[in-house]
């Protein structure tokens, strides 16, 4: 505060300028992440439910293989590049494996004989439910 502001002049302090810069940066970042980014409406979490146990969540960020024991045997679930699928299950009909990749929030499939279901969840998903054959 070396030079006190006189009447009618606008006075910016160093801290003000830093705040203004940060505010402008925030704006630019928001435009990029919300207009050009894809974060919203994309799946980011896998929910695995086994029988009547409470569901467990796994991040889709890290590729990995998950192995679970259900009613009739094991089910192997793969997480890869933000998607998930059954790659093996002990059931005969293999509907869960045929279902292929889950990609969208709300997408779900289950190995009914083994009582294991997998569901994708996304931040601010666009739909409350998905309709159609599963």
């Amino acid at each position: 505060m070396t030079n006190a502001p006189g009447n009618g002049t606008i006075h910016f302090k160093g801290t003000d300028i830093i705040i203004l810069l940060l505010a402008v940066l925030l704006c630019v970042w928001l435009y990029f992440s919300l207009w050009f980014g894809q974060a919203i409406g994309k799946a980011d979490t896998l929910i695995v439910q086994i029988d009547d146990q409470s569901p467990t969540e796994y991040s889709l960020k890290n590729d990995r293989l998950l192995k679970f024991n259900g009613r009739i045997g094991t089910s192997l679930i793969e997480i890869k590049q933000g998607k998930a699928r059954f790659i093996h299950s002990s059931c005969r009909n293999q509907f869960c494996v045929f279902h292929g990749w889950l990609t969208t929030p709300g997408d779900t499939t289950a190995c009914l004989p083994n009582r294991i279901s997998i569901t994708l969840k996304g931040y601010a998903s666009e739909y409350d439910a998905l309709a159609g054959e599963r």
Binding site: M1, I10, H11, K13, G14, T15, D16, I18, L20, A23
Partner: peptide, 12 residues
Amino acid sequence: KYQPSAIGYALI
């Protein structure tokens, strides 16, 4: 001395 002035506060 380093506190923001009215402008900085107003932005916040």
